[in-house]
Design a protein around this nucleic acid. Structure first.
Lengths: 218, 218
DNA sequence: GTAATAACTTAGAAGCATCTAACAATAATA
DNA sequence: TATTATTGTTAGATGCTTCTAAGTTATTAC
């Protein structure tokens, strides 16, 4: 078993590595809001436990063991988010904070029960895939809305880099997973995307938003 | 907010005080499986926070503030147990361990949601009362089965001093809350109680068991 | 290619919760 | 009451996670 703290480092390492490829001490420090010397010594500790590879002045890299453990933490997090939304009626913008805590509970039985109740889900409420019990994670390849071309009709499949604010924004615009979007135009000078959806709605989304919306082409 | 550890001390203090009146450092040490010097220094720390009254060589006594905070931890524990049983399908013998962890989550919203989903319950799966949001706890006065007299018909209302083993024993004998028991006889030399219930069942319960079954006279 | 900036590391300290060893006070017992 | 046993306290240490201060290496900019 790994400590609360260790699990958080593993999770952060995994998430940062999947978006950036490598993880510097500085990246991790900023992401966790923990000072660099602390991160540095924790990295050495995780390296001793064979969870990551540490070399002075080099980026940090999870070992296979580290990746697996990290994925299992992420599994617990995403299962929890799904449970909070589906079974307890929370909004998708409310669940992250709570799941950050529940993911560290030491009770395999509890997570198995959630999984069972949810019917063994493969994605979380934000469309992110849930790693399986062995730590395997399949990212379905979706397009960013910002990469679509005018005339295409797509389905909103996942949202990335989510924050509560961003999710509230999507709520306000009735942009939920599964909604069909028709791309009307893409502005070349600022990357904003004009879409129509829900029969009547028409909106222009900034590049910042459009880059975070992953869609499935229909 | 109080730490995980502090909440555990408060809860233990409250539970021990309600059964024993006073709580010695030694009692608390044994109950928490934490050595006396540690308990001693923690007691001083809690005293500084006005949660308990500490005097050298005297038993520990929670202040009103301490009692309230303790009751609120117990509230979270019992609400959680109820949720695990009623909404997640756990057995009453499985929930204690999990609730011990969930009770420390820092999310008022999460516990409010559980309360709401459960319909604002007043007792937990073992028949223990759930303190209200202000920390008030009403113990309904039940009789121990061991204090009943032959001929009485009673309803099993609560079980106390529960352990997983004890709860499994009750499961095996189909002794669930709400079951009606008819007292056939009480042995004066060992205190064992012979009962009939569920139409056909007839059992002799030892004093150890009968003392832990709280019943409502009908 | 040197100077400035940013990133990384080392060293040392602090808070929290825990421990052991040694000593002090109270309670039980003979 | 004197002795013994139990309970409580103090002092000092440890592991974990965090920090600041100070120095080192790598990167960027001129």
């Amino acid at each position: 078993m790994y400590s609360y703290t260790e699990e958080n480092y593993l999770k952060a390492l995994f998430n940062l590595a999947s978006s950036k490829g490598e993880v510097s001490v500085n990246d991790l420090s900023k992401h966790l809001a923990i000072k660099m010397p602390t991160v540095n010594s924790m990295a050495k500790k995780l390296a001793e436990k064979k969870l990551l590879l540490y070399e002075s002045y080099k980026p940090l890299r999870l070992t296979e063991k580290g990746k697996k453990e990290a994925a299992l933490v992420i599994r617990k997090h995403r299962l929890t988010e799904m449970f909070l939304v589906q079974e307890m009626g929370f909004g998708w913008e409310e669940v992250h904070e709570i799941a950050e805590q529940i993911e560290h509970l030491q009770s395999p039985l509890f997570f198995e029960k959630m999984d069972e109740i949810l019917g063994y889900p493969t994605i979380d409420p934000h469309g992110s895939p849930i790693p399986d019990k062995t730590g395997k994670l399949e990212w379905i390849h979706y397009e960013k809305l910002s990469d679509c071309t005018p005339g295409e009709t797509v389905k909103l499949a996942a949202v990335i880099h989510t924050t509560d604010e961003f999710l509230k924004f999507l709520n306000n615009h009735q942009l939920f997973l599964g909604v069909k979007l028709k791309v009307k135009s893409v502005e070349s000078f600022d990357g904003s995307v004009r879409i129509t959806y829900n029969k009547t709605k028409e909106e222009t989304l900034s590049l910042t938003v459009a880059e975070r919306l992953l869609v499935e082409k229909l």
